[in-house]
Design a binder for these strands. Structure first.
Lengths: 238, 238
DNA sequence: TTTATTCTCGTACGTCGTACGAGAATAAAG
DNA sequence: CTTTATTCTCGTACGACGTACGAGAATAAA
């Protein structure tokens, strides 16, 4: 059950999922691989959105029967977990921390943003997933190293990582929605007319003024940088 | 299609949805109301999560036939939009801006967080919705008034509002996930064992240290305040 | 060769969103 | 009071979804 906020949602067992060496040396040999299936699902999501990722579509893409997928992931929810960790593998760290942890942290956030822009479904998928897979853990390991000079305790470092990820996800989700509207002139026009009508009703003077004095259009990259700087420069070591 | 990041997802027409007075004075009188249907859907989502909100469940809750709902909302996506604006009505502003716009902005963010904690599905639902309904617009109007002393131009003010909303949504989504894990001792234990196993593999020294020196447990409210202060105190008027 | 094990996948079930259209209720027109 | 137009109600039906089940195929050990 992806994409909800259910209080008692049941979840993945991380031990069964990630801590399994390849034991079985008997029985029929697998025709596919978890890797290939995950990659196909990611490609599908990139091209057609998360809703296009159905077990049937993924199976067809891999050339497998639908039910064969269940030999590699116990359910669809787990497949999504695999997808998230798969693309986390693209968060390639260039080298060891420079020592300037604020600069390093900004680089980290920029890497995450780039990855989310490459995989627009990622912010949504991330918002309900919790157990980090190996690729996510490798990235986390780097972030913890970056944070070493801060002297923060363990829990605080983990919190900073989660917070930055949440911040970037939220920002990019909004960025993507904006871009989608801009890409469709009809939709942008409809939205503009709607807001103009609201502004004209007299009960929204502030909105009316904001729309009439828009200022220069904002570049997404610059906006991201500005908010990122505010957040990270504000971080303190106490 | 909720909860995805599809590039060309089709969307709501805000003019048809929000700018409709009650015109029709002929034909059969409606047996239900958009308001009642939306409220039922919200109650359902609060109690059982977003996935429990199906057209059949909502109809049953209201006492209507399933297809009758489609007289009040053209599709489920629109119903979600109605739900989001419905709970935005709970963002009750206490009074006019105090003049200390940073303090006011923090109050705004706290209101939003409280609302999202009351409706845990809200962060997820928000991440794909874009057109503000009347309740959202009323709240936005207040935020714009709060931002007046900053002298920012219209686009920048709107950007700040979107950014704060995204920040709070991201934070609360993570907060909710954390709380869900903590509420289940089994899950928390499984996750702990998993992370301990990873930390013990020797390739994650930073993680090992972070877990061994956790520091005092973090209070969610305090953590939120800390990050909120960083973000808002860092806002500047240039 | 037999047996145990592991994977493959066709079939089937229950649930979902919603298209369709027949019927019920209501207001205006005759 | 009819008639007609309009608006809403909702039973039925369709295609797509996730996945339980189990029969058959492939492989390794006995």
């Amino acid at each position: 059950m992806p994409g909800n906020g259910k209080p008692g949602a049941e979840s993945i067992d991380p031990e069964r999922l990630w801590l399994r060496p390849t034991e079985p040396r008997r029985g029929r040999r697998p025709s596919f691989s978890r890797e290939a299936i995950t990659a196909a699902a990611v490609t599908l999501a990139d091209a057609e959105g998360l809703d296009a990722v159905t077990m049937r579509r993924v199976a067809a893409e891999v050339g497998a029967g639908v039910m064969s997928l269940y030999s590699y992931a116990p359910d669809k929810e787990t497949l999504l977990e695999l997808m998230v960790d798969h693309v986390s593998g693209e968060l390639t760290v260039t080298g060891p921390p420079s020592g300037d942890w604020r600069a390093d942290l900004k680089t980290v956030a920029r890497l995450q943003r780039a990855n989310m822009l490459r995989h627009p479904w990622l912010p949504v998928a991330l918002s309900t997933r919790r157990v980090p897979g190996p690729n996510t853990l490798a990235f986390l390991e780097h972030v913890l190293a970056v944070l070493r000079p801060t002297g923060l305790d363990g829990a605080a470092k983990l919190e900073v990582f989660a917070q930055i990820t949440a911040f970037v996800a939220g920002h990019v989700a909004h960025e993507i929605a904006q871009a989608a509207v801009s890409r469709s002139p009809d939709r942008a026009a409809a939205e503009g007319r709607y807001l103009a009508a609201v502004a004209a009703d007299g009960r929204h003077p502030e909105l009316a003024e904001a729309l009439s004095a828009p200022g220069r259009p904002l570049a997404p990259d610059a906006t991201f940088s500005r908010f990122l700087n505010r957040l990270i420069d504000g971080l303190d070591t106490d």
